[in-house]
């Protein structure tokens, strides 16, 4: 018996070892990004394998944030590639926020119509909405680009946010699921009291669904923040360029010989930081909602 137990615990230890290995593989690249961003780009090549930053310095962050002088930058191996970080950060914040607020609000309205109102053809219309989930984004990107161009909105905030502003099938689907589960009695009581649908929606359904609404807002915000393809098409110019696009350009601009790895990693880390921060605070919600919804 003790033999079986020992074998069992041995196997359990092995299983834990594999799981810990998975966790290490997940976290190591994040650490490596931090390590390189805190290194002096000139001495990086001499110690590619050391686990600590080489010649610890905040120089790379200063270069990226534009608070290093040219002399300081070149002394630490900064390249000529420039990144106007604050502007791109502001662009990402603004476009993602506008997309989130509008998309969640309009999707919630639609979800209300699909979940709480009764009208002929409701299920059919909902099914048509859902089919949009099957369309690969590139399938609509070409004509959407033409639309935005013809509206004269290339290289504007409006052009970047427009296709995401009104709905996504996922947001409608997600919110409808929660709205369906709200008890009808509360609503009926309000109706007896003479409340209109606007009142029911704003005063009952939305407050009662604040948790799922916060979750979908978070998911939409992260999705918008990470989006690359669409802003690459319509928002190349400097004054509307978002962080993802800026990072791509920054990397393309850095010279083949002696690129500014520290600067690149510092910029990358700063671009990922808001999402990592959001996740640290709201991680549990995100994990639960992904398990709940399955799709995304």
């Amino acid at each position: 018996m003790s033999d079986t137990l020992r074998r069992l615990s041995l196997r359990r230890t092995a299983a834990w070892a594999i799981l810990v290995l998975f966790i290490l593989i997940t976290l190591l690249p994040f650490y490596w990004m931090l390590r390189i961003s805190l290194s002096n780009n000139r001495t990086l090549f001499a110690n590619p394998g050391s686990l600590m930053p080489t010649d610890f310095t905040f120089g790379a962050f200063k270069r990226v944030l534009g608070i290093a002088t040219l002399a300081e930058a070149t002394a630490e191996g900064g390249s000529g590639a420039k990144i106007d970080f604050w502007r791109y950060l502001a662009n990402s914040v603004v476009t993602s926020a506008v997309i989130t607020v509008c998309q969640v609000f309009f999707s919630a309205m639609a979800a209300y119509a699909f979940a709480r109102l009764r009208w002929p053809g409701r299920e059919k219309v909902f099914f048509v909405f859902l089919t949009a989930l099957m369309i690969p984004p590139i399938f609509t990107a070409l004509p959407n680009f033409v639309t935005v161009k013809q509206l004269g909105l290339l290289n504007t905030y409006a052009g970047i946010v427009l296709p995401y502003l009104f709905m996504t099938p996922f947001a409608v689907f997600f919110l409808r699921q929660f709205f369906l589960n709200i008890s009808r009695e509360v609503e009926e009581a309000a109706i007896v009291d003479g409340a209109g649908h606007a009142h029911i929606f704003f005063r009952l359904i939305v407050p009662m669904s604040s948790a799922p609404i916060a979750t979908i807002s978070l998911l939409v915000y992260i999705g918008a923040w990470n989006e690359y393809f669409w802003p690459l098409l319509v928002g190349q110019e400097d004054d509307v360029r978002v962080l993802t696009v800026a990072l791509g350009i920054f990397r393309a601009q850095s010279p083949q010989a002696g690129p500014d790895w520290s600067g690149l990693m510092a910029a990358t880390l700063l671009a990922a930081l808001p999402v990592i921060a959001l996740f640290t605070v709201f991680g549990r919600w995100i994990v639960n909602s992904i398990q709940f919804s399955g799709i995304k």
């Binding site: 976290l27 690249p29 994040f30 990004m33 590619p48 990470n226 790895w261 990922a272 990592i276 996740f279």
Partner: peptide
């Protein structure tokens, strides 16, 4: 579960750049 999910939440571009650095022929780990 949260830790294992973390890479999915950062942008493709960020992931690509981290690995591009880590897999570099000269100074990649």
């Amino acid at each position: 579960r949260g830790v294992l999910l973390l890479p999915y939440l950062v942008a493709n571009v960020v992931v690509a750049l981290i690995w591009y650095t880590m897999l570099d022929a000269q100074l990649g780990i």
